[in-house]
Write a protein that binds this DNA or RNA. Structure first.
Lengths: 226, 226
DNA sequence: TATTGCATACTTCCATACAAGAAAGCAATC
DNA sequence: GATTGCTTTCTTGTATGGAAGTATGCAATA
């Protein structure tokens, strides 16, 4: 059913269980609707039920799992409403951040962004969509850092866990070439020193999800709730 | 030390403990640096350690508490970096939302906002700063709802828990009259149907925190970490 | 055949006991 | 007097047993 790396017996068990399950959910190894059991996971990892239970509570607090008393614990379905909220927040925040980056006009930044985009093209050429998702994250983080607000990205990252699940599970259906082109547009806006252009490009980029979402939810309706 | 309402024995204990402790933290009854003990809270509530422990884990996941193994559990100090991130995010998001509200131009909305501001004035007249904080929350929530994105506010609310603690603990040092005036400016922007004016007013309003923060951190440095 | 009732096998939840680590006080020693 | 080491007492972490609630399959009944 599920492969989990063995835990380190010298450290606390509960955080390790949490970490492993969280990764499994985010990479799509555990899909929405899957059922978890305290005793089953405990046996799988060779520990007692209590630390597993604590990991479940932590996951539920993240919105990744749902504990239904006396029934079972389930991987939470992807809330379309949450995804849309996260997208709107990202558009507003990253729109502001890219304006700050343009205002700073750091000359050393542009070559680094170009190099990132080159790596994204390689990921596309290799057909490695998981790699692209990671590179995409890094691209946006780099921009937040360039704006002087890396900590903002850390906050957003927790918030957009639902978006990440969506992208991993349905990675194949996205048009990576188009996303890369949009990244290029953003960088070109920065190169031109045109804050408004860069912001428009960023907002278009983050609006792309709205185009892709309907098809995804139609093809895999069992993974979603409103 | 701490007053906690008795729990309902017919319902699950852990969520109730979580809820009571969370409220106590947000209203400032538990201040940053305070120490909690599983067994102490358990005795106080007449239950065993286990559900208390689970509540602690949930609080830690919210960033409100910090469990230090074999040492104790502490109310987390207010992270200035987190507060600043939350403020920046709010400015970007609510700036976008207020533009949407202006675009909708719902005629029934303005009287409701006026009534809200009247209540805020009453809270000021009564010197009830806790009430004003709650009304302020409601004012912003109402605007998000008017933009058609109440769920976005739900997400922001969890994110800005650190901001709420700050405001409750230091409520006296804020100039409530000024905040109300800024609310009026926002509503006037809407009344004029001027999206740009409304957005500017909102951004000024949310920038107010940057003016107030230095004095607060200087007067109570023991409550903060960078 | 359709429905009701019950036994059974799960699940999460709570209480309790014990283990392991950290801190503080105190005494012995240099 | 200062330091070291031990003892005690606290803390959180884990294991386990049992309680209560839920779903399911099966048999009895209308």
């Amino acid at each position: 059913m599920l492969e989990l790396p063995a835990i380190d017996l010298t450290a606390s068990a509960a955080p390790q269980v949490y970490d492993r399950l969280r990764r499994a959910i985010l990479r799509g190894a555990l899909v929405p609707g899957d059922r978890l059991s305290e005793s089953e996971v405990a046996k799988l990892m060779g520990i007692s039920r209590q630390p597993v239970r604590e990991a479940f509570i932590h996951l539920a607090s993240d919105g990744l799992a749902e504990v239904r008393p006396q029934r079972g614990t389930y991987i939470r379905k992807i809330s379309i409403s949450d995804v849309l909220s996260a997208r709107l927040i990202r558009e507003a925040v990253e729109g502001d951040l890219i304006r700050m980056v343009a205002a700073k006009a750091d000359p050393a930044l542009l070559p680094r962004l170009d190099a990132e985009i080159q790596q994204q093209r390689q990921a596309l050429a290799q057909g490695d969509s998981d790699l692209f998702v990671r590179l995409d994250d890094r691209f946006h983080r780099m921009l937040a850092e360039a704006a002087g607000h890396e900590s903002v990205w850390n906050v957003l990252e927790g918030l957009k866990s639902q978006m990440n699940r969506l992208r991993h599970i349905t990675a194949r259906t996205f048009d990576i070439q188009k996303l890369i082109d949009q990244h290029v547009e953003i960088v070109e806006g920065l190169r031109a020193g045109d804050a408004a252009q860069a912001e428009q490009a960023m907002r278009r980029h983050l609006n792309q999800l709205l185009d892709d979402l309907p098809e995804v939810t139609r093809s895999r309706p069992e993974l979603f709730i409103p």
